[in-house]
């Protein structure tokens, strides 16, 4: 599949599982989107790609309230978390996020909104194509916590009615940003 096909397939699959998918060419635009949607305190865990972009700076300039540490204390009050992504899987609309650092895990599991920035060049076709990268990530950090995230948290445990947002984020916003990072090992 060409990269355009992968992007198209990823977008369709991610929307199918209830994610919001937005395209941006500038970090400023992405920051504006997050600022509009966050609804309060934003958890920003360490992320090489987002730091290069100075996303935190851009958000602060817009008057956003950010937290970058003590997540265990502040997370229960934070409606939003922001992260990068190592890469994505097209056929299931999945974000792959190495979340070994606890801050990344807390920022992406506790808040109601998860904003994830992804470079559209980092998309593989399917679950099997993802495995060589999973292996490399696990080899690089033998003690690791790796998350596949496909859409928001969901349940159908009451009368089999699909209901969004039970324990994890109720909203997943995928922000595709050109030129963010082409390195599958960083997020």
């Amino acid at each position: 599949m060409s990269s355009a096909d992968l992007l198209q397939a990823f977008r369709e699959a991610a929307i199918r599982v209830g994610a919001q998918v937005k395209f941006f060419s500038q970090a400023q635009e992405a920051a504006a989107y997050i600022s509009d949607q966050a609804g309060g305190l934003i958890l920003v865990p360490p992320s090489p790609a987002l730091e290069r972009l100075d996303l935190a700076g851009a958000l602060r300039k817009r008057g956003c309230d950010l937290a970058s540490r003590d997540f265990r204390v502040v997370a229960p009050q934070a409606p939003a978390g922001v992260s990068g992504a190592n890469f994505a899987i097209a056929d299931t609309g999945t974000i792959v996020l190495e979340s070994t650092d606890e801050a990344t895990r807390l920022a992406t599991t506790l808040p109601e909104r998860h904003f994830v920035l992804l470079d559209p060049r980092k998309i593989v076709a399917d679950g099997l194509a993802a495995i060589p990268w999973v292996r490399r990530l696990q080899q690089r950090r033998p003690r690791s916590f790796l998350a596949y995230i496909s859409g928001p948290s969901r349940t159908a445990d009451i009368e089999r009615v699909l209901t969004i947002g039970v324990h994890g984020p109720c909203e997943l916003h995928i922000l595709l940003l050109d030129g963010l990072s082409d390195d599958f090992l960083e997020n």
Binding site: T92, R143, Y148
Partner: peptide, 25 residues
């Protein structure tokens, strides 16, 4: 993982697949 959610509930994939290796921070 390719087959399990499809055959369990007709989902292409569950919302989360979590790979945990070892004692993490």
């Amino acid at each position: 993982i390719r087959v399990l959610p499809k055959n369990a509930t007709g989902q292409f994939l569950t919302s989360y697949v979590t790979w945990i290796t070892g004692a993490v921070p």
